[in-house]
Amino acid sequence: MAEAGQSIAALATYLGVKAGKVTLDGRDKLPVVKGKTGTRRGLVSITKHLVRAAEKNSLLGNTAEDQAAVDQWLEYRVSQLDRCQGDKELAGVLKELNAYLADKVYFVNHTLSLADILLYYGLHTHFVGMPFYDKENYMHVSRWFDNVQHEKGLRQTFPYVHFLRTQIYDRMSH
């Protein structure tokens, strides 16, 4: 779960704020940030605090529904994506996300939100090593991923992931 710390640092850079020192606490390696205004525990509370500190509240959703939807996907990152054990569970998550993204460009309401950012950071390690066949299999996630990684200042030192525009595998035969 080293990625949680990495995600927090990257988000802080993207937002242009200071993250403070992240420590991983306990057996679950829960990220903890001790700041002047108090101690925050857990990826969701830390990142949401950073967004508010950067005064980019629209990333958390503008309406109550959108805010709930963003929260839901942040929770999904922590409770589903980060807890994947092995390829099979990951495949389940990707399949689910693929179906969800089939008719959407962003996770919540037609615009980039914290949900997209944290899911992008969370999925990055998996996408780096992914063969083209799988990328094509999860077409909608791939398309979303490619779009998000082009957001200015978001990718930073994360390696650029290549996607093919043309289909090389005939989907009908599988």
Binding site: M139, H150, R165, T166, Q167
Partner: peptide, 11 residues
Amino acid sequence: LQTRTFLVGER
């Protein structure tokens, strides 16, 4: 648009 979000580039 199968593999693209927008028509040209990613924006």
